[in-house]
């Protein structure tokens, strides 16, 4: 438990710093690379939460596929790679009080709801078989709907991005 706690705090601090860099850096490519740090940290947290299949999926889909999409999007929509000054809104300071108010509201709700409740110590890792039993059992209909969503997204992306 001690080792897991130390791991949690190190990864959490790295994730928060990287997330702050994602929303404050003036370089789009650097933002994408900081986002990789956040996503990898999230995958590590999933392993701490005994969700190994979700962690592996996170690495494959997010760090593998989504980040390549982001880098391609950056490449195709900008002439130059480097620092830019025109990335933020003029009213960006408005975001700080909004974020702080939301955090205080959520924090108070979390403290009053869960206090110092602990996670179960004897949790076993959720196996891939259990997850697939759920997906292809009670959650089959959303799975089908998701397949249609992905097909529509693929067709839609091609239709939007091709040159006529």
């Amino acid at each position: 438990m001690i080792a897991q706690n130390i791991g949690f705090w190190i990864i959490a601090i790295v994730m928060i710093v990287a997330a702050l860099r994602v929303v404050t850096t003036n370089n789009v490519v650097h933002a994408a690379l900081w986002l990789v740090v956040v996503l990898a940290g999230a995958a590590a947290q999933y392993i701490l939460l005994a969700a190994e299949f979700v962690a592996v999926t996170q690495v494959l889909v997010y760090i593998g596929a989504v980040m390549v999409l982001f880098l391609f999007g950056t490449m195709l929509t900008r002439a130059r790679i480097g620092t830019e000054s025109d990335l933020n809104n003029s009213y960006k300071k408005l975001g700080i009080p909004v974020g702080l108010v939301m955090f205080v509201a959520m924090g108070l709700a979390l403290i009053s709801s869960f206090g110092d409740e602990k996670l179960p110590q004897t949790a076993t890792v959720v196996s891939t078989q259990e997850i697939s039993d759920q997906i292809f059992g009670p959650y089959l209909l959303p799975f089908w709907a998701l397949s249609v969503v992905l097909l529509a997204a693929v067709v839609g992306a091609i239709v939007l991005a091709r040159k006529d």
Binding site: V23, K92, I111, G115, L119
Partner: peptide, 28 residues
Amino acid sequence: MFVNQFLFLAAILFCIGVYGVIARKNAV
């Protein structure tokens, strides 16, 4: 490990994301 430490990490990331949506002008 407490339940709240994970929930607070998620809340902090959520608020940073909200700030990013408000502050950023670049669509990517």
